[in-house]
């Protein structure tokens, strides 16, 4: 239920202008990520429904096909990362990858890929998709690269929630994905107030904060203190 994404990334609206804008924004992030992470390609899958289908975008056309491959095959790090809600880091597909994903691992190795790193694009129970980093050489991501990949996954979440590419890495992540317990509690409260999914509640809180030019923290504090409630029509 909560694993849907806001309408912008929903498969049924994939051709709407806002969906194109979002996917375009994600594609740009993939291109930047591929350069920053010294990857042969970076892809993102935006999950629809229970995660069996994904809307893929990538830093280049070849990587986009690789990204789509796991949905065709029904296995791979991206699917595991989504299901387990945690990163799946496979620095050498030959060492462990073949055992874990026999079909997928041989297929991508034939394409010259030796390492795959998959990062869920999620905030708590809201799972929106997965970021995949592909490399042609085996080896782990450095701590700095790991941190950058996780930050990118967070930025992708924000882009999906806001329905457009508002956040940029230059803004820093502090304003993009707040980590205060109170904000997460506020998300749960607004979800019940709206009878919506957690992702929709997050989108509404962010939109409200943006529209009223207030800090997310302050809005969350008001929600938790019950000074501010949401319903289907307002605020």
């Amino acid at each position: 239920m909560a694993d849907e994404v806001p309408e912008a990334a929903d498969g049924s609206d994939a051709s709407s202008p806002s969906a194109i804008g979002v996917m375009g924004g994600l594609r740009k992030m993939c291109e930047t990520a591929a350069r920053t992470l010294l990857a042969s390609g970076v892809g993102m899958s935006v999950m629809v429904g229970n995660g069996v289908r994904g809307l893929a975008t990538a830093s280049d056309a070849a990587t986009e096909r690789v990204e789509e491959l796991q949905f065709t095959l029904g296995e791979g790090p991206c699917i595991d990362a989504f299901a387990s809600r945690r990163p799946v880091l496979m620095p050498d597909l030959e060492d462990g990858g073949l055992r874990r994903w026999p079909v997928y691992a041989s297929a991508v190795q034939e394409l010259g890929i030796r390492a795959v790193f998959a990062f869920p694009m999620q905030v708590g129970a809201a799972r929106l998709g997965v970021l995949d980093v592909f490399r042609r050489r085996p080896g782990a991501l450095s701590p700095k690269e790991l941190s950058e990949a996780l930050t990118l996954a967070d930025l992708a979440v924000v882009t999906l929630l806001d329905g457009h590419d508002r956040a940029s890495p230059a803004d820093g992540l502090d304003g993009a994905v707040e980590r205060r317990a109170e904000l997460f509690q506020a998300q749960g409260m607004v979800m019940v107030q709206l009878g919506s999914t957690i992702a929709e509640a997050m989108t509404r809180i962010r939109a409200y904060a943006f529209a009223s030019d207030r800090r997310l923290d302050d809005v969350a504090a008001d929600i938790v203190a019950r000074r501010l409630t949401f319903d289907r029509d307002h605020p």
Partner: peptide, 13 residues
């Protein structure tokens, strides 16, 4: 984070 979200949901419900 999931637990904090759940706390909010139960607090509201």
């Amino acid at each position: 984070i999931i637990i904090e979200q759940a706390k909010g949901a139960i607090a509201q419900a």
